[in-house]
Design a protein around this nucleic acid. Sequence first.
DNA 1: ACCATATGTGTGACTCACGCAACTATCAAG
DNA 2: CTTGATAGTTGCGTGAGTCACACATATGGT
Lengths: 182, 182
Amino acid sequence: MTDLDREANVLGALALVITDQTAAAAAAAAGQSPSAAAALSALHHFLDRPTIDRLRQVLGLTPSGAVRLVDRLVEAGLVTRGPGADGRSRSVALTARGRRAATRISAARAALLSGTLAGLSRTERDTLHGLLGKVLANVVQAKEGGAWICRLCDLDACGRAAGHCPAANAGLAKYGPPSVSD
Amino acid sequence: MTDLDREANVLGALALVITDQTAAAAAAAAGQSPSAAAALSALHHFLDRPTIDRLRQVLGLTPSGAVRLVDRLVEAGLVTRGPGADGRSRSVALTARGRRAATRISAARAALLSGTLAGLSRTERDTLHGLLGKVLANVVQAKEGGAWICRLCDLDACGRAAGHCPAANAGLAKYGPPSVSD
DNA sequence: ACCATATGTGTGACTCACGCAACTATCAAG
DNA sequence: CTTGATAGTTGCGTGAGTCACACATATGGT
């Protein structure tokens, strides 16, 4: 039982609670399932209208799973299907209602996460931010495929575009410049 | 877009990846679903033989969900039902095979989590540990009911018994001394 | 130009892991 | 001895996802 184990354990425990609570808060804010909420959040942060396949990659689903998810979102009036750049592909875009839901989701997530940092001083939060960035870079390095790491991530807060996102930077170092919404 | 938002966002993103990967690793190590893996891990860390209801609380399931989960684990030969202290209740205990599976799960989880801390120095890890403890305490304070926060937590690493667990300490401050496996 | 193969989407049948509602058995209190 | 809480269980339904497959479109080699 090393110190490393102890530290790792706290990290794992904390990650689990926070993820649980965030997913629940997002789902509640959307009135939808957690994965639907994640999809709305992702769509909200795409600059262009992604294809179903792109969304699929982000959420880590199978093609058919993604189709069904979009079906449900269309059904709920949160999303519309449009033509894709390709004859095969179709684009997905938020409706006005979908955009409102996505905004609520982001707000709920931000509120919850900010709350967890309540007891920390300015300096402590700064230090924590730096350290978490390092860890995040580690995790991204280790990752191959699967769901987008920033599934519910807030791209503005993330500063991905400005190169502030530790995940994006680490990924960039490894894979080279990605396309905008990758 | 404040600094707080940015810090909170990194925390949320990191928590999500780590939780995803941990659950996947645990499930793979057990050859079972993530929730079955969580159940095995929980059972492994109970000092006594918990009842189904106790397990239910830990995992955040409904009674029927817990019964079905135990059904599956029994079916897989990982767990046995025994008599409870009470005529109503029944106890659950790991079989030898279940114990081995639980050990694999813990090891897989520990390996993954330790890996995420790879790039950090001794001092950095120490600082991080302290800060995460504070955050964890915050989260526990905010929490009412639901799943056990340390669902996959390693109780040895946690140092719960010795009073080193930030979650347990925060909970203790709020609710008073819990029973051993709470 | 033609064919093989890859890619993106969609459908039908199914599974798995839950939840809800209802029922039974036990216990504890009045 | 009734009343009510607690624990486990069962039937039934459902949401979310998978797999296998089909179909349309793209792409590249010959």
